[in-house]
Design a protein around this nucleic acid. Structure first.
Length: 425
RNA sequence: GUGGCCGUAGCUCAGUAGGUUAGAGCGUCUGGUUGUGGCCCAGAAGGUCGGGGGUUCAAGUCCCCUCGGCCACCCCA
């Protein structure tokens, strides 16, 4: 009985070398950068009580309505695969009550059951940070600075930072009323979909990409004109801070992010080299009410997430990333089998050199061919004669220098000497 | 969930109006005399033509179903 070979589920992907090398670089850079900004790594489970997300996002959101991976475990609990990073962090905060300000960074897969498409997958990965306990426009700007720096370091340059304020529990409802009244008078001009659905979540119309809705919302009342004094002051300060930090931004009054929990500062970083419908590489914002929504203590918070797959797609379409295989320092070729090879490999590696070897008894020619393919800089050749004489042949592979023999006690330092020499050139 | 395009070697693809043992390039492996890479040359391995059913003397090629991939809508990272 044979079976069809199994594939990864629809919308999920394996990341193989050398693709994975790009991930390694971006993640490594982000970990360093987050540390410099004072964020500590937080690891939370990918499964959570499904109610965490349905409460946090609001039932009107598509993520909760139709995109969540929800299932019942063997104990009858209703769990969900996390669709984004923020809710789990806030849950962990409420559960452990760490001292504030609490600043964490994370790397996590995120799951949404949608039809896969360019730059949109059922499992994607986000890097992000969350800062809880402080309600400060200076912090808002600092977090945007961190997000922008991360994306720029990945190699993207054709990007735009969009910022907006969503107001607070005081002024947002007022604005929503004004907007609702405006939209009611312009129903006829909206796109087919929103003509039917605009009143469910009026703010969502602002986000609509169709020409009809954009024409309507161009002249719609703007939330920036309806902010309360406190929100207005905060938003002004965020902008001043961004200017001081030399970060150019665009005020986008239509920027309404998908989840209900956002308050005040919201932002999105879009790539101009991606299709307009999926051009957001990263985004985030402040969510001062989320902790309470999740039955925690009143605690302000702000964070962002960056989608790794989408960041990489953007890099590709910008042609931004040049990546070179660093190759391997040493290849050890052997003729016959001898334990000296294993020992030498061990010692070289512990001295900090990358070493590869053949584990099969192949011809010297085949071994050197392989060494060339690996991008090895030096080949060390060990045959019967060398074993007998207690020496090895050191053959430079990246230069035209002649090979020569070295005594065993000097192999490591001689190897290091050549590698250093080439590094300087 | 709705719609469009597409599924031939590991990869990128060719396969004439249906007709013998399904091809190329790249990659992989081996060899080009004793233990020496890259270039070059020679050879080899590798394919249920996504799967199932049907039409036909004959199907990778035509029809149906199914699975999968890509893309678009919706929405988001």
């Amino acid at each position: 009985m044979t079976f069809e070979p199994l594939r990864s589920p629809a919308g999920t992907h394996d990341v193989l070398w050398p693709q994975s090398a790009r991930w390694e670089r971006i993640i490594g850079d982000f970990a360093d950068r987050a540390r410099l900004y004072g964020y500590k790594l937080l690891i939370t489970p990918v499964i959570e009580d499904a109610r965490l997300f349905s409460r946090g996002f609001g039932d009107a959101s598509d993520v909760v309505g139709k995109e969540m991976y929800v299932f019942e475990d063997r104990g009858g609990r209703t769990l969900a695969l996390r669709p984004e990073g923020t809710a789990s962090v806030v849950r962990a905060y409420i559960q452990h009550r760490p001292a504030t300000p609490w600043k964490v960074w994370y790397l996590t897969p995120a799951f949404r059951y949608e039809r896969p498409q360019a730059g949109r997958y059922r499992q994607h990965h986000q890097i992000g940070v969350e800062a809880l306990g402080v309600d400060s426009p200076e912090q808002d700007a600092e977090i945007i600075d961190l997000a922008m720096g991360t994306i720029r370091a990945a190699g993207l340059s054709d990007i735009e930072l969009l910022v907006n304020s969503m107001g607070c529990e005081v002024c947002r409802p007022v604005y929503e009323g004004v907007l609702r009244a405006f939209l009611a008078e312009n129903v006829h001009a909206m796109c087919d979909y929103h003509r039917e659905h605009w009143s469910e979540v009026p703010l969502r119309v602002l986000d609509c990409k169709t020409g009809e809705c954009r024409a309507v919302t161009d002249s719609a009342p703007r939330i920036s004109e309806h902010l309360c004094d406190a929100c207005m002051t905060a938003f002004d300060t965020v902008q001043t801070e961004l200017q001081v930090l030399g970060i150019t931004y665009t005020l986008e009054h239509r920027l309404v992010r998908g989840f209900d929990y956002y308050t005040r500062t919201t932002f999105e970083i879009i790539s101009h080299s991606l299709n307009a419908s999926q051009n957001a590489v990263g985004g985030g914002g402040r969510y001062n009410g989320l902790s309470e929504i999740l039955s925690g203590p009143p605690t302000p918070g702000i964070g962002f997430g960056i989608g790794l797959e989408r960041l990489l797609v953007a890099c590709d379409s910008e042609g931004a990333v040049e990546w070179h295989d660093p190759g391997v320092d040493v290849y050890i070729a052997e003729l016959g089998r001898d334990t000296e090879v294993s020992l030498l490999a061990h010692q070289l590696r512990n001295a900090g050199y990358s070493v590869e070897r053949s584990y099969e008894n192949k011809s010297l020619k085949a071994q050197l061919r392989y060494a060339g393919r690996l991008g090895a800089r030096i080949a060390l050749i060990i045959g019967d004669r060398e074993i007998a004489e207690r020496e090895v042949i050191l053959k430079p592979l990246v230069s035209k220098d002649e090979q020569f023999t070295v005594g065993w006690d000097r192999v490591i330092q001689e190897t290091g000497r050549w590698l250093e020499k080439w590094k300087k050139q």
